[in-house]
Amino acid sequence: MIFEYQIEGGDFTKAGSASSEVKKILRQLNLEPSLIKRIAVAMYEAEVNVVAHAYRGTMTVDIDTGRIFIAVKDEGPGIEDIEKAMTEGWSTANEKVREMGFGAGMGLPNIKKNADELKITSTPGTGTKVEITCFTRL
């Protein structure tokens, strides 16, 4: 099963609505609540990053027996130094993002913590792709 959602950059009132839809689908699959939470937290931080740092994006969810795969792809400024961006506490977030309760440089490290596999690819000036995989049976 493949699902796709649009994410609008800068629109904090709607940030999380894609993740919310996906979480509802995951709940119907009878997965472990702790696994659903790990996926929910990882995709939500990735969605918030598109809203906070990019112009627009898509969230594609591919559900298969054995694994849930989520790709969050955006058009945006991209990430110059991914290793640096993964460092806890490193952030370029503006005041508006911080007012929303984000911007502490904890999102990417937390995505890594919750995902079984994480792949980040980015082209500065073009955009970023964050790919999250969680296994349903280990």
Binding site: G16, S19, P33, K37, G101
Partner: peptide, 30 residues
């Protein structure tokens, strides 16, 4: 700080906060 709340592994807890916006509710949902 919602990013902080999102690092918690436990579920079914109570959140005490001074931040009242849509992301507070979304964070609780996730």
């Amino acid at each position: 700080l919602m990013s902080d709340v999102l690092t918690l592994d436990s579920a079914d807890i109570l959140l005490i906060t001074g931040l009242a916006n849509m992301q507070t509710i979304r964070t609780a949902e996730m």
